[in-house]
Nucleic acid binder design. Structure first.
Length: 280
DNA sequence: CCCGGAACCTGAAGGC
DNA sequence: TGCCTTCAGGTTCCGG
């Protein structure tokens, strides 16, 4: 499930392999992937355009085009982008981008939840996202201020793309474990010290994920077909019943907002504070 | 404004 | 062995 580290890995792998190339044809096997216009208009708008660079915003991959347009892709649950020869005939390839050097870029997506846009201004798609968690401008003060305005469970707030961009289920669970915070704690109930610990844990979890080239939990694979290795370093995510690496207590799984949340009940006790942190 | 839940999807896994 | 149900979760939309 591509989150920030997985999309960043895709961006880094793909950038040298497709930058400078142009689209010469498009095969759309699942037209509903196209978001803001008809599949035919999307195809005609893209053919002839040249890729001049790749950006990432949250979990969105942005292909900057020479015209100033942006081709934006979101993998959602099961999407991956592949450049390996033969990917065109994979039964789960939903879109084939044919490039001017004879190579292909394939959008493989078994569950068909992935989406893409061709827009004049990338802000039309990514404009409502919260700040990038790894930007140097994203300080602990900004983090505390943004999560401290919400009363929802901290797990849900961490995964809210409008609060912070790029964090999903896996890395939220890892960050909360590293910070020793129960996922159901109301976000506005964390102490300043807890918010500081969570900020550091979140950034470390994401950086570690990037260093490992992402986590191959389900369908995720890198553009060259390799898998990521971050899942091996996960301490709680997708480890229900396994002993906590710190204390040996079995990892539990509870649903929060229809999502599985994995945590250690001993290392992440639910201790609600009496008074709220000072706001403003 | 803010919260929680349904819908979109299909392969994998578990139950009987 | 095989059918059926449940689960997986990022995002958007909707109702309270």
């Amino acid at each position: 499930m591509p989150e920030l580290p997985e999309v960043e890995t895709i961006r880094r792998d793909l950038s040298p392999r497709i930058t400078g190339k142009s689209f010469v044809a498009l095969t759309l096997n699942w037209p509903k992937t196209v978001q803001n216009q008809s599949a035919e208009a999307f195809k005609q708008g893209l053919i002839g355009q040249t890729i001049c660079g790749l950006d990432r915003r949250g979990k969105y991959l942005i292909l900057r085009l020479a015209s100033g347009d942006s081709l934006i892709l979101h993998m959602r649950m099961s999407g991956s982008l592949l450049v390996e020869p033969g990917c065109e005939s994979d039964p789960y390839t939903r879109t084939v981008f044919h490039l001017d050097d004879g190579s292909s870029l394939c959008f493989r997506d078994p569950r068909k939840l992935g989406v893409m846009w061709l827009v004049k201004d990338a802000g039309e798609v990514v404009g409502k996202l919260g700040p990038e968690p790894l930007d140097s401008s994203f300080t602990v003060a900004i983090f505390g201020e943004r999560i401290g305005r919400r009363s929802a469970p901290i797990k849900a707030v961490l995964c809210d793309q409008g609060i912070i961009a790029g964090i999903g289920n896996m890395y939220a669970d890892e960050a909360l474990f590293a910070a020793g915070i129960h996922p159901l704690r109301p976000a506005d109930n964390l102490s300043n010290g807890e918010a500081e610990r969570l900020y550091a844990a979140m950034r470390q979890a994401l950086e570690r994920g990037i260093d490992c080239c992402g986590a191959s939990i389900s369908d995720y694979q890198r553009p060259g077909g390799q898998t990521g290795t971050a899942q091996a370093a996960f301490k709680v995510a997708h480890r229900k019943g396994q002993p906590c690496p710190s204390c040996g207590t079995p990892i539990e799984r509870i649903p929060i907002r229809q999502r599985g949340s994995y945590f250690c009940p001993r290392c992440q006790p639910y201790r609600k504070r009496q008074s709220k942190r000072n706001k403003s």
